[in-house]
Nucleic acid binder design. Structure first.
Length: 458
RNA sequence: GUCCCCUUCGUCUAGCGGUUAGGACACCGGGUUUUCAUCUCGGCAACAGGGGUUCGAUCCCCCUAGGGGACGCCA
């Protein structure tokens, strides 16, 4: 069986967003699952909009997810000469023709067609004129007029369209540069791509490219068109609602495992399983299991996965991740209990940033909100009594400390919340925090006393 | 407008002619927990509509509606 070769072919005109990342992921998974190769090709023929920084950003995003191309990136702009000569050869063989219609003429024509409720497309005016090719003329591909163009999509099934719906599209511009649709086809052929995996917005391009392959007498690759990822409003993903730079997610403290799991589950399923490691995906992934309907982006789901992975990776790894990838505005590593604290706080954390924020009070005296101050003042006597007795607590062992607390409460005839509520506010500056005994234990005798004193003297 | 694709709980989805239509997220309750959370138990909630085919349609076919996409000398 021949080796599968797939490619991800973004144009470096923007950052990699969720939709692109999913396409790359599926393409990579499919190649790797089949012991094949995954390639990266930059479609950088639009000089105006293509930017080096975007190339870098896309490579970084893929690298973050652990998607590594098997060869150096290919730049479409480097193959222009081949595209041009191939276009000329099609002209030579009569599969393409020279056309001198001006852009203004074409606009006029489209306008009329739309008025007449026709599909706007080139009317074939110069198709059979055999015009001599000269500078300024474009070369158009001669699309078959009769019959249909069909292919078996690995996700969507049979896709078929009457050839009369396809128009004689331009393959070489007036300035001699090749157009995207042509270049992409030639490059796929050059790179010996076996399966083209891309968004379903490319379906009409596929139909055109298939005819290019036919006229060149070249094999036609397999195709798999992924349904689009829609925003939560059901519209196409845009900057406003989710098409942000993938690296933003990294900055916000999302784990790559969460992104991958979320992205792959957006359309792909394997029985009732929700959680997949990369290794599992690499052995289970098939294009046939990809759903054929578009999916909406869901903040809730991505958060669910992130929380899941924050809680399932090794706590040491989590610590390393925070130290290396995040800006922590306070010092963590001096505390001998830092891993236990991390472990305590991570349960309810949505992101790494969230986690860092949630455990800040362990390392710094909290800022007190006015309403919290008032709440504590209302119970200040209890705190004073507790302070007098804090010496009697054994801070060396969490379990013993917990028992000491109980003893203190019963000997002073107090219910737990009477002490717990204000004490928690003093120690943590918030209502949602670990248990009182854990707070005292991890903060330690001195810091606990310090915070109580600070509060009382204010 | 024309063509292409899509349509099961709010969301992601399972289902591939006979199911009490399953799971996950979210949400809502109960229990556990000296707060929140965790954990646990339970609940709410869907086959877009209409025609066929069939003994029987979520599933096959057609139509309608809705959504998305494509219709550039952009990619």
């Amino acid at each position: 069986m021949k080796q599968e070769i797939t490619r991800f072919a973004p144009s470096p005109t923007g950052h990699l967003h969720l939709g692109g990342a999913r396409t790359a992921l599926f393409s990579w998974l499919f190649a790797k699952k089949n012991k094949g190769k995954f390639l990266l090709r930059f479609e950088d023929t639009d000089k105006e909009r293509s930017k080096k920084e975007y190339e870098q950003s896309i490579i970084s995003s893929l690298a973050w997810l652990g998607i590594k191309p098997d060869e150096n990136p290919i730049f479409q702009s480097k193959n222009i000469e081949l595209h041009r000569t191939t276009a000329l050869s099609l002209l030579e063989s009569g599969n393409a023709y020279s056309c001198d219609c001006s852009p203004e003429q074409l606009n006029e024509m489209r306008k009329k067609q739309i008025e007449q409720k026709m599909q706007p497309r080139y009317d074939g005016l110069n198709r059979d004129k055999n015009l001599p090719h000269k500078d300024g003329n474009v070369i158009r591909f001669k699309m078959p007029i009769q019959g249909k163009t069909s292919f078996q999509d690995k996700i969507l099934g049979t896709i078929s369209v009457n050839n009369k719906e396809l128009d004689d599209f331009i393959i070489l511009r007036g300035d001699g540069s090749p157009t995207y649709n042509f270049s992409a086809a030639i490059d796929d052929q050059e790179m010996k791509i076996t399966t083209v995996i891309r968004g379903d917005d490319h379906i009409t391009n596929t139909l055109k490219q298939i005819n290019i392959f036919k006229s060149l007498e070249q094999p036609i690759p397999n195709y798999a068109h992924l349904p689009m990822v829609l925003s939560n409003t059901g519209k196409r993903l845009s900057k406003r609602d989710g098409a942000v730079d993938l690296l933003e997610y990294k900055k916000l403290g999302y784990l790559k495992e969460a992104l991958i799991n979320y992205l792959v589950k957006l359309g792909w399923t394997y029985s009732n399983q929700e959680i997949f490691s990369k290794e599992e995906l690499l052995s289970l992934f098939t294009l046939e299991a990809v759903n054929s309907s578009p999916a909406k982006f869901s903040e809730e789901l991505i958060t669910f996965y992130n929380n899941h992975y924050i809680n399932s990776i090794q706590v040491e790894d989590l610590y390393q991740l925070i130290i290396k990838e995040c800006d922590v505005p306070y010092e963590i590593d001096s505390n001998i209990h830092y891993l236990e604290i991390l472990n305590l706080i991570r349960e309810g954390s949505k992101t790494l940033l969230d986690l860092i924020n949630q455990m800040q009070f362990f390392y710094e005296v909290p800022q007190y909100e006015e309403r919290h101050k008032e709440s504590v003042q209302a119970n200040i006597e209890v705190i004073s009594v507790f302070k007098e007795n804090i010496n009697a607590l054994d801070f060396s062992d969490l379990k013993i400390l917990e028992n000491n607390l109980k003893e203190f409460l019963s000997s002073n005839d107090l219910k737990f919340p009477q002490l717990g509520k204000p004490l928690r506010l003093i120690l943590a500056g918030r209502e949602n925090a670990p248990s009182i005994s854990q707070l005292l234990f991890f903060l330690g005798y001195e810091e606990s006393l310090n915070r109580i004193n600070l509060f009382l003297t204010k």
